[in-house]
Structures are given as C-alpha cells and as structure tokens.
Design a protein around this nucleic acid. Structure first.
Length: 242
DNA sequence: GCGACAG
DNA sequence: ATCTTGTCGC
C-alpha cells in the first residue's frame, strides 16, 4: 500500500482511514532544514461539499510569484483527526497545478499547509498527507490545538514546545505571533525537523497572526469561493488551462 | 459515561 | 469551515 493508492482508492470507513494514517505516519521523515527557494501556502474554502483549494507561490522575500486554484467535490464530512480525507485530494491538486504553472522543482519548495503536520493523534495530519503525496517538504500550521501538551506562550513572539501526549517527544511549537492573539501551532509535515518547521514559520511572518503563505492562500481561497458561487469558476478537470 | 476535538 | 454587523480596542 502506498499513498498513490490512497488518492486513487480512498478508504471508506473510519477504521480503514485510521489504518491508512498509521501506515502513512511510518513514512514520514523528520529530517531536513528550511532552505527552499520558494514557499507555497495552501488553504481551502467551501461551498457546501465543493472544495476550493488555493495555492500561492512566494519567494523568500514573501513576494507572490504565482497562484493556482483547484475545485472538486468531496464525499467525506469533517471529522476531527480525519481532515486529510476531506481536503487532502483537492489540496494536493492545487499544489500540483501551482508547481506546473510556475515550473518549479520539488526540491526547491516548502509547502506550508493550513492544518496539522505530525501534531496529530496518529502523527498524520493534512500537512503530512500533502508532503507524503507529493514527496515535498511540508509544514503544518493551525489556529487551534488538535493534539499535544503545551504551555501557553505569554509574550509576543514567544514560542513553547508542543509535546506528544504519549511519547513526550517535541512534535511542534505554539507561537504567540501577535500581542493580543491566541497562539498558532506549528508542526512538521514531512521532510523537515520540528525546529526547522518553526524557523520556516517565523521567517515567513510579516506582522499578521498567520505566516504570509497561509494568509495569502486564505485570501485566494475566499476569492475562489466567491467565483464558484457566482458561476465564474467551475469544477476543475484533472489538469486544465486557465 | 464525559469531555476533547485541525478545518 | 460557514452563517453574519457592528463594534470595542491596540
């Protein structure tokens, strides 16, 4: 069983999904530094069960280089810890489309996803799924905690470790990115260490609560959602032009 | 049984 | 995530 099979033939029951996550978690690599030339942000918006995935490509200076939208239907409802089965396919396709448009090499990118990495009960969140599916470096960022113990960071830009509730391993960090905001949670998705995942987020912050890649993707997804509702954007084919 | 629970 | 206007505060 490999991840291509998962994308082609998605598990149907929760038990199957749980098993898939456990298997995929074994394939994760927590080695790697944040040295990519380009940072991609991925986020989703919804219109009923239609997923609108947005992927924005930025350079190290956080200037937007390219954007891509991918729209598809989803069968799976939102169930905590099983988010990858609802948004994973669309998210992966949006990144593929962006990679093709900008003609980028997987070795030169880091994908920051709006969702958990290994900070997940079975160490297999949405960011991990995207990283494994495309074999690219990925980082997960969430606005609330899904899994792990942590001490509330008190001062702006203070970071505290996110600890695995069972093993005690450091699986990510809580970061108080702005004075009067709740912290965001960062964890490695694939091919990067917890410390470097944190560096990736800190280096892409630009005065807002969320790192630029995610913030930009969120804005694009909202635009895409608007277009879908007005009929100006239809379901994507496997690979179509713009 | 009760509470927790990404988006 | 989504439904939604104004509004309090840095």
């Amino acid at each position: 069983m490999n991840i291509e099979d998962v994308l082609r033939n998605p598990p149907k029951t929760l038990e199957e999904m749980r098993k898939v996550q456990l298997e995929l978690a074994r394939l994760v690599s927590l080695k790697g530094d944040f040295e990519a030339e380009y940072v991609l942000g991925v986020d989703q918006a919804f219109v009923g069960d239609t997923v609108v995935s947005a992927c924005v490509v930025l350079d190290r200076g956080m200037s937007v280089v390219d954007r891509a939208l991918y729209v598809e239907r989803t069968e799976v409802p939102y169930i905590p810890t099983y988010l990858m089965f609802r948004e994973g396919s669309s998210a992966v396709n949006a990144v593929r489309k962006a990679l093709e448009k900008a003609d980028l090499r997987k070795k030169d990118i880091c994908v920051i996803v709006d969702g958990s990495g290994i900070a997940h009960p079975r160490r297999c969140g949405l960011a991990t799924f995207v990283g494994l599916a495309l074999k690219v470096q990925s980082v997960g960022v969430t606005k609330s905690r899904l899994y792990g113990y942590y001490r509330e960071p008190e001062n702006t830009m203070e970071t505290t470790p996110l600890v695995d509730e069972v093993s005690g391993d450091v699986i990510g960090y809580a970061v108080k990115t702005c004075s009067r905001c709740r912290p965001i949670f960062v964890s490695p998705g694939h091919m990067i260490s917890p410390g470097e995942a944190l560096k990736a987020v800190l280096k892409t912050l630009r005065g807002y609560k969320l790192p630029e890649p995610i913030r930009m993707a969120h804005i694009l997804a909202s635009e895409g959602k608007k277009w879908v509702k007005s009929g100006k954007l239809a379901l994507s084919d496997f690979f179509e032009k713009d």
